Deep mutational scan, measured.
Amino acid sequence: MPVRRGHVAPQNTFLDTIIRKFEGQSRKFIIANARVENCAVIYCNDGFCELCGYSRAEVMQRPCTCDFLHGPRTQRRAAAQIAQALLGAEERKVEIAFYRKDGSCFLCLVDVVPVKNEDGAVIMFILNFEVVMEKDMVGSPAHDTNHRGPPTSWLAPGRAKTFRLKLPALLALTARESSVRSGGAGGAGAPGAVVVDVDLTPAAPSSESLALDEVTAMDNHVAGLGPAEERRALVGPGSPPRSAPGQLPSPRAHSLNPDASGSSCSLARTRSRESCASVRRASSADDIEAMRAGVLPPPPRHASTGAMHPLRSGLLNSTSDSDLVRYRTISKIPQITLNFVDLKGDPFLASPTSDREIIAPKIKERTHNVTEKVTQVLSLGADVLPEYKLQAPRIHRWTILHYSPFKAVWDWLILLLVIYTAVFTPYSAAFLLKETEEGPPATECGYACQPLAVVDLIVDIMFIVDILINFRTTYVNANEEVVSHPGRIAVHYFKGWFLIDMVAAIPFDLLI
């Protein structure tokens, strides 16, 4: 008679799926529990143990900040960024110097990925580790590398530091407007667009060049630039800015003055950032001319202004700041037409079709709590990747769950009947059967004279019903998954307890 339990259901295979997918890609990662103190490590794979030199037993239950890997060259700011990422709910990448158990130093890129439950609360953290440099290539500990984003994938490793954006290309926007319009339909740009040429040739750093990471940081200074100062900065030398009595002219307006920039070969870094931020506020060169004239017309309804409409929906549905990093990277690809469009465009503009998908598509409701890094690593669709929660398995109709209350009560009843059979069957065979043979035949009273025979008949009927119930009862397979398919249940029961239950259900007393 089957006594099969499996009270692990309803099970959740999400954690096993993450481990299996990460292991298949030869990654070095740990999984931490966000619900406990210090976000203790609950799993670390073999790749991480080989990377740091510690065994799994030495890593388990330690804080996922990996303070046991810190050393003299470990930056405090990087460690603080990892700790801050564990307090938030967004994906974050941090470069930090770690030390192995043998004392060797290596520069590592740590990717902190939160995993949320159905309520939107962070319950786990996945920390992925990628070695960037070994100890002989690690720089000085005073050099802070965590304020910069990861290198873009479309640049060669040897040319990542030679990417320079020439400031004269930004200063000569109005001069290039006529050349853009003359391109017409034969050019790649839309009317009114501004073409910015980027020099990728390796050259020595000069005062006129600005690194790509500095251009990325310009967006942080746009908020500090007032509207009046932006307007004066875009007017140009024809209309000098008016300053109040006793007030000095704005240095932001002076930063885009061609006369002032041409007199000296070098520009201050602050002026460069502010000038680029001011130019980015204009949607095209037409807006710059309109600002000089004193009238700013409404933005025209053409394809170039609607190019950012799908980007707005993608940004609203993005799951991490990696989408913004990807957008900034692609927006700086050289030799393309940049349409400086305000994100607050007309909502009635139709979304044009684009061959290049900048932001990841909208994630469906079932995966809105899973970050983009987890979705990318697992390579699963929205119909396959579940949320991290207890999910009731989908069972067929008329199927009994093996952990249901009805099955528990039924098993206790069958257990009592088995005990009765084990006690009274030998007793009936030894004593009652002998008395029946010696006594007179009682054929007239039937079952009324033999109450134990009636009980034995009921017990046999219950055993037959138990066999039928076992054909529709779920079970737990070797992978700790609840199986509810009727065919698989029948095959599993035939290979197991079916023969024993059938022999126990045969009414031998009635056959004798």
Rank of each mutant, 00 (worst) to 15 (best):
A40R: 11
I359P: 14
D46A: 10
L107A: 14
S104A: 07
R252L: 05
E208A: 10
E177V: 03
P334Y: 01
K21N: 08
A307Q: 11
T305M: 11
D286W: 04
F29C: 01
R76N: 15
A190C: 06
L167E: 15
H7W: 11
Q335G: 14
E365A: 12
P334C: 01
V41W: 01
G238V: 05
R164F: 09
V3P: 07
R92M: 13
H254S: 13
R326Y: 08
Q335P: 14
N38K: 15
D219C: 06
S250M: 15
T74V: 01
R5M: 08
P227Q: 06
P352K: 03
A350K: 11
A172V: 01
E372M: 11
V180C: 11
G192T: 08
I336E: 07
A228M: 06
V325M: 14
S354R: 05
A303S: 11
A78W: 01
L378R: 02
A9E: 12
E95Q: 13
P386G: 13
R92T: 15
F125A: 10
V377R: 03
R181K: 13
I123F: 06
A121I: 07
S261A: 08
T353Q: 13
A188Q: 11
E208C: 01
L171I: 05
R328Q: 11
S284V: 12
S239V: 07
A188T: 09
F48Y: 01
K116I: 13
I336N: 07
Y99R: 01
V180L: 12
P297N: 04
I126S: 06
G262C: 04
K362C: 12
S179W: 01
V138P: 08
A9H: 15
T216W: 05
G192V: 03
F163W: 08
G345L: 06
S331R: 11
A203V: 06
D286P: 07
K373M: 12
T216L: 09
A57R: 14
A9P: 06
I126M: 08
G53N: 01
S354F: 07
P300F: 01
V384L: 05
P10C: 10
N146D: 03
P205R: 05
E23S: 11
M133L: 13
K101E: 01
N33E: 10
I126Y: 14
G184Q: 15
A350G: 10
E91Y: 15
F163G: 14
S255Q: 12
S153R: 09
A211Y: 09
V341F: 04
S207N: 06
R181I: 13
M218D: 03
A203L: 06
S379E: 03
A57D: 04
A188W: 01
A260P: 05
E23C: 06
V325Q: 14
L69P: 01
R164I: 12
V41D: 01
A204K: 15
I31Q: 01
R5I: 08
R148E: 15
T367W: 15
S264L: 14
A121R: 07
R35I: 08
P151W: 13
V194S: 06
G53Q: 06
Q335E: 12
A268W: 12
G314V: 07
A188L: 06
F14Y: 07
E357M: 14
A217R: 13
S153D: 11
P72Q: 05
C49V: 14
Y99T: 02
E274A: 11
R356I: 15
R164N: 11
